[in-house]
């Protein structure tokens, strides 16, 4: 229902901000996020920033995922894996059902 991309603000000029993602630069309106600042990551939808990304929450999510990856690797090494119905064997390649 709505594609939105996290992009970083590099410049603010009134209600317009210059925002960048990897190798991409665009101008978007920050009228919906007036307290966004340079260096903030914002979610951009159809030319407007609609939210400032909460860095702590983002880091927490990615921290959790890193832990999960380690847990998965550790369990692999112990050969203890709950049954996953053969969809995915350990190195991520799919066993032909």
């Amino acid at each position: 229902m709505c594609l939105a991309l996290p992009m970083r603000i590099t410049m603010i000029d009134g209600q317009l901000a210059t925002i960048v993602a990897d190798g991409l630069e665009q101008r978007a309106s920050i009228v919906l996020v007036p307290d966004a600042d340079i260096g903030d990551y914002v979610l951009v939808h159809a030319g407007y920033a609609i939210s400032v990304i909460d860095e702590d929450e983002a880091n927490e999510t990615y921290g959790l995922l890193a832990e999960l990856a380690e847990a998965a690797a550790w369990e692999d090494s112990r050969g203890r894996r709950p049954e996953t119905g053969g969809r995915l064997d350990r190195d991520g390649t799919q066993e032909d059902a």
Partner: peptide, 13 residues
Amino acid sequence: VSPAVRSVCDLLG
């Protein structure tokens, strides 16, 4: 796929 191409694809769907 270069990062810039991927970003533009994410932006425009």
